[in-house]
């Protein structure tokens, strides 16, 4: 009887501005994926305010989990394990999700699995596309931008990362400069459709250099300088700047990924993850690069690029199936580099 029941993991994500919970099965079915976005709470500030985020997570956490369980149509006692993001991220929010998960695990004496948020993003394509190890991963979100060689669960070699802003942060700051709204990623992308990507020649920082580190602060400053040059900024100026900014990001991403593929000398998949991977121009650019280099290109569906519970449930499942679990004393952490897991 026990063998015929599929293994089920509940995953909880609260590291930034989405309160999310999901149940996945060991064969990669997503039985529920509930995401409550706090965008409205932070809109007026042009970015996520940590204390507002933490308060909102607490208000939503039990409702979101209850909904995820009822949509999956299972009971807590049916779960094999409970997984939660334990960092990196805004610690006030991380604590809410992690502590709620621990209490559920404690009550049922079920395994608790502390998931690294970045690992959740890194393994998402194994949930959605059954991608095999090893692969090259471009992880780009509001808080992180890095290129990783993913060799296995818990085995991540960092090939390069941003030396200043994250890519998503550059989108948010540019959107704020151009008064396009929040969150910046979708706002810039929508404006860019109406603009000329060649109108402004924004810098492609680091692209002349070896390796695959990123830098976006110069790009953001270049947009600011162009804005300051204008007495009055028209909508068309904004669209052109958004398109030119986005074009610069696409070219930077392609250049860095090209170097990364060269560094690892191995035919394999090129995978993108994180909120910035929801940008269509970036996806298209990377797909062209992958085709040219003869490697498979894989991007998760848009709703699994941004933060969600399914990626945490799945990372928890991968760890659970390898027999791993964490003590309830595991202390959530604001910083937790993926390379430290190996």
């Amino acid at each position: 009887m026990g063998n015929t029941n599929p293994k089920l993991v509940l995953g909880i994500e609260t590291s930034c501005d989405e309160t999310a919970a999901s149940v996945v099965t060991e064969d990669g079915q997503i039985l529920s994926n509930v995401v409550f976005s706090q965008i409205e709470d932070h809109q007026n500030f042009g970015g996520v305010v940590p204390e507002i985020a933490a308060r909102s997570h607490l208000q939503k956490i039990d409702g979101v989990i209850r909904q995820a369980m009822s949509q999956a149509n299972i009971k807590f006692s049916d779960l094999s394990a409970i997984a939660a993001t334990c960092g990196p991220g805004l610690i006030g929010g991380v604590l809410v999700g992690a502590v709620t998960a621990k209490a559920i695990a404690a009550y049922y004496s079920k395994p608790f699995i502390a998931v690294n948020h970045l690992e959740g993003h890194a393994l998402t394509v194994r949930l959605t596309n059954k991608v095999k190890f090893p692969y090259l991963l471009l992880l780009a979100s509001g808080g992180h931008t890095q290129l990783l060689f993913v060799k296995g669960v818990g085995q991540y070699q960092e090939l390069g990362g941003t030396i200043d802003d994250a890519a998503g942060e550059a989108f948010d700051k540019t959107a704020k400069l151009l008064n396009l709204g929040y969150p910046g990623g979708p706002a810039v992308e929508a404006a860019a459709v109406k603009g000329d990507p060649k109108a402004y020649n924004f810098p492609r920082s680091m692209c002349q250099r070896e390796g695959c580190d990123f830098s976006f602060s110069g790009l953001k400053s270049a947009v600011l300088r162009e804005v300051e040059k204008l007495d009055q900024i028209t909508d068309q100026n904004k669209f052109d700047m958004a398109a030119s900014f986005q074009q610069a990001i696409v070219e930077i991403m392609m250049n860095r990924c090209k170097n990364a593929l060269r560094m690892i000398h191995q035919p394999m998949a090129l995978v993108v993850a994180g909120g910035v991977a929801a940008n269509r121009e970036i996806r298209n650019g990377l797909e062209r690069l992958a085709q040219k280099k003869g490697v498979e290109f894989v991007a998760p569906p848009l709703n699994l690029c941004t933060d969600n519970g399914a990626m945490i449930a799945w990372a928890g499942m991968e760890k659970f199936l390898l027999g791993r679990q964490d003590p309830l004393e595991f202390l959530p952490r604001p910083r937790w580099p993926l390379s430290s897991l190996s």
Binding site: L58, I61, D62, F76, V99, A103
Partner: peptide, 9 residues
């Protein structure tokens, strides 16, 4: 959060 977790469970 702990109270809500135990309560849910």
């Amino acid at each position: 959060a702990a109270a809500r977790g135990f309560s849910l469970a």
